[in-house]
Structure formats: structure tokens, C-alpha cells
Amino acid sequence: MSAETLTAQQYIQHHLTNLTLGLHPEHGLSFAHNAEEAAAMGFWALHVDSLLWSFGLGYLAYRFMLGVANKATVGVPSGAQNFFEWIVDFVNENVRGSFSAKNDLVAPLALTVFVWVFMMNLMDLLPVDLIPYGFAQLMSLLGADPHHVYMRVVPTTDPNITFGMSIAVFLLVLYYSFKIKGVSGFAAELSLQPFGKLGMPANLVLEGISLFSKPLSLSLRLFGNMYAGEMIFILIALMYGHSLLLDISGATLQLAWAIFHILIITLQAFIFMVLTIVYLDMAHQHH
């Protein structure tokens, strides 16, 4: 495909660059034309593609859930309601199993996490060039250079998205830790174990690491899995367009990896949800 006009390195680079809107020191408010420009924008920049896909998918899922919830009947459920109830039951069972305190926020939070992350991961199963190529062609009609139009369709391969969610969960963990245990209780939990009063500095270091590793591991696990998965799809896509043998083996590999990936995207959404529940449960526990 695009590999005809780009080197393999450029092709991969193109696929890993976000559509970035930001304040460039020289060009002002504009879309970045390459990775260097995007980097030069620094903090005040938005990954428009990640955010649009993330909001769009979230909104789609939300509209579906809202539609089902508003029409929910006690009697025999329709197909959509049956499907949604199956998900809700699944989430609810996980919350009941892992979360021992009483908090009405946790179950809807877990549901949102699971559904939204799954939807974002699902974008990984689309052919890697389908939307970026189409988008680049569309933009070239409007006068843009297709080689500098970027589009990443899997929001969970953007660490901004995964960190955004994991930090939000982390803030909830901190909030409930302070609320349930009190400032002194939370401080005691961080400083008085595992070595007792005398080992306070060591305790603080250990507990601090374990505390801050929560959002880090939560988001990096999801990001790493999805990023690696997408990278493999991109590498497989590089095989196309050279010879028939490579095309056939590429198609076979892509199919195999896509089937395997169905498991991964579901598993990652599930893990994100379960860990969210578990972290919040730990925040609710007294010692």
C-alpha cells in the first residue's frame, strides 16, 4: 500500500504518529506535520485522533447502554437488553466478588471501564490502513499532503488515553483512602508497615512505590499490550505488495493474529476493570 512510496521505517513512523493539534513555537496553533513538530509543541497539544475516537466510541457505547436502560423491561428482555444485561451481570458479579465495602460508584465505574476500554481495543481489529489511508485521501482532496496527515484509530495505543484513565482511577483511590481511613489512618498504612515504627523510612519507600505503581502498571499494561499488538499488525501489513507468497503468508498471519487478538483485547479490558475494582477495594479497607 503506502509502502510503495514510503520506506518501511517511514511507514511505521507514519502509523505511530498522532494527529496533533497544538501551539507550535514557530507555526502557532496548527496541526503538526511530522513527529518533530508534534514533539516541539510540548505539553499544550491535543491528540485529536485519540480523543475523537475515544469520545466517539465512548459516546456510542453510552448511547447504546442508555437506550437499553431506558427501555429496560422486567418481563422477557429483548435481544439488546439481554446482551447488555449479560455484560451488567458479569461486571456486577466481579464487583461483588472483589469489592467488599458499600459504594454505589464502583459498579458503574467498572462497567464504564470495561465497555469503553473494550470498544477502544476493538479498533485494533480493523485493518491498520483502512481508516488512516481513507482519511489521508480525504484530506488530500482538501489540499493537504497525504504523507503528513496522521490518524491513529486505536486510542488505547496512546499512553495519554491509558494514563488519563488510570490516573482518574488513582485519584479515586486517593480520595477514598483519605475518606475511609482518614489522613492519619492512611499515613499510618503508608509508614507503619511492613517493618513497624522503627523502619518508617523503609516503609514509606516500599509503600510509596507500591502506591504509585498502581496507576503506572494499570495504564502501562494496557498501553503495552495494545501498542505491541498494533505494531505486529503494522509489521504484517509491511509484507503486502511484494510477491504473491508474501501476500498469502501475510494474510494468514494477519488472520491468525486478529483471532488471537480478540482474546487479548477482551482480556485487557477485563484486567483493567478488575484492577480498578481491586484498587478501590483496598482503598476502602481498614487495617
Binding site: T20, G22, A38, A39, M41, G42, F43, W44, A45, L46, H47, S50, L51, S54, F55, G58, D158, P159, N160, I161, F163, G164, M165, I167, A168
Partner: peptide, 12 residues
């Protein structure tokens, strides 16, 4: 790059 996207996603 980590940028404003993170906070927008947090709010969303």
C-alpha cells in the same frame, strides 16, 4: 508525547 490529551481524557 504526554500532553493535554491526558487531562482531556481524564475529564471525559
Amino acid at each position: 508525547n504526554i500532553n493535554l490529551t491526558l487531562f482531556v481524557q481524564m475529564i471525559a
